[in-house]
Amino acid sequence: MQRWGITIPLTGVPLTAHRELVEQLPDLGYTDAWSAETAGTDAFSPLVLASQWAPELRLGTAIVPVYTRGPGLLAMSAATVAECAPGRFVLGIGTSSPVIVRNWNAAEFEQPYARTRDTLRFLRSALAGEKVTAEYPTFSVGKFKLERVPDPAPPIMLAALRPGMLRLAAREADGAITNWLAPGDVPTVRAEIGPDTELAARVFVCPTEDADAARGLGRMLISSYLTVPVYRAFHEWLGRGEALAPMHEAWAAGERQRANEVIPDEVVDELIVHGSLDECREKVQSYVENGLDTPVIALLPTGGDPFEQVRGLAPR
């Protein structure tokens, strides 16, 4: 089946006010609802609500940081959603970023690859109901056992941007979740994980025919995200190093406005889907045609009715 996802909650919409829309998503053709976790809602609570409002949807976290909860709490949170949505929940985990981990959550951001690998291995055991006592390279756990074991245990997907983490996702997880890529980048990512590993990606969609407004918003997002070292390295790997070099130079000099201004239109148009609802839907579909299994639309605010926009972006 072709999957078609949406990110919840929507910007500016109270969490409990989503019920009307979420209940309609399966009939509109959406198969998935995925949450995120930065400084808004936590990743799990919106999915607990959605599990009761739309029992047909697959639900996923994209992503939960491996540093900001202890391993046991992460397992408990995942098991709770899995119990609310048996067989319909996917746990997406990843490193997040130094800003979120260090600056906002007072945790150490060290050995991201190893910490993700170790957390994945712990979660596999814990969510299967095993009593876990283990010395992992990045943390240790003694005699942890879930009191409420989910049946079935949820699949686990990894946030992955470059070959090392992508290959770990293909080798030990149930899929890879990526972010900030163009349709033409999908084959590069797909080549690292092979044809049989699920690949999901958040796709930023700004449904407006005011190209200047869409690009303005897109530039602010790009300069905020792609100056993070892991995203900078990701886009250098994808071949955008030269195009984004002026942005990085201005950002390093503290010239934030200048950093926005020097991002080329072509880069914005590659990474931000904008245009009419029909044009946006077709471009999201182009990700699928290039090898993406699960597009997860992240609706950017345009001043329009977000519920109507979500309805208009439903697959045809």
Score class of each variant (00 low, 15 high):
T11Q: 13
G312W: 06
E236F: 01
W34E: 01
A213E: 07
G164F: 08
L15M: 13
Y113K: 00
G218V: 11
L299H: 05
P295E: 06
A159L: 09
Y67P: 13
P306H: 09
E37N: 12
S224I: 00
P152V: 04
G129R: 09
L73R: 12
L21Y: 04
W251N: 11
G12W: 07
Y67N: 10
A128E: 12
M165I: 13
E249I: 05
A78V: 12
K145Q: 15
A153F: 00
T41M: 11
E20Y: 00
T31E: 07
R117C: 04
Y225Q: 09
V310C: 09
R58A: 13
V149I: 13
M1P: 14
L91T: 10
K143T: 08
P9G: 07
E110V: 13
I272W: 03
C84A: 15
T178I: 00
S97P: 00
L166V: 09
A250N: 01
F307W: 09
T61W: 06
T302Q: 04
D185T: 05
D118H: 10
I100W: 01
N179H: 15
H18V: 12
V310M: 09
V205P: 12
N260M: 12
A36W: 13
V64N: 10
M220E: 15
R171D: 15
S140H: 13
P295F: 06
A173M: 07
C206W: 14
A82W: 06
V284G: 08
F109G: 09
V48F: 02
P152Y: 01
R232L: 10
A200I: 03
S276I: 05
R58S: 14
E266G: 14
N179K: 00
A245F: 00
W237F: 14
N179F: 14
V81W: 04
G60C: 01
P246H: 10
L277N: 08
I272S: 08
Q2V: 09
D278S: 14
L158P: 01
R232S: 11
L299D: 04
T178A: 02
R202Y: 13
M157T: 08
L158T: 10
E198Y: 02
R167G: 05
R167S: 11
E266S: 15
L123R: 08
G175F: 11
L313S: 02
R102Q: 14
E266Q: 10
D42W: 04
L277A: 12
S35H: 05
R167P: 06
E255M: 02
A107G: 07
R88I: 06
I63G: 00
P9L: 07
K131T: 14
G312A: 04
P26N: 08
P246D: 06
E279S: 12
D305W: 07
A50N: 05
T197I: 12
P112M: 11
P137N: 06
E261L: 07
I272T: 08
L10D: 10
R215G: 10
V81R: 12
V66T: 15
L244Y: 03
V273K: 10
V81A: 10
D185M: 00
C280D: 02
I222C: 04
V228A: 12
V296L: 15
S286T: 13
I177F: 12
H274K: 04
A182R: 01
E261K: 10
A176H: 02
L244M: 15
G241A: 01
L271V: 02
E83F: 00
R171L: 12
T188G: 03
A78R: 05
G194V: 10
R117D: 02
E23H: 05
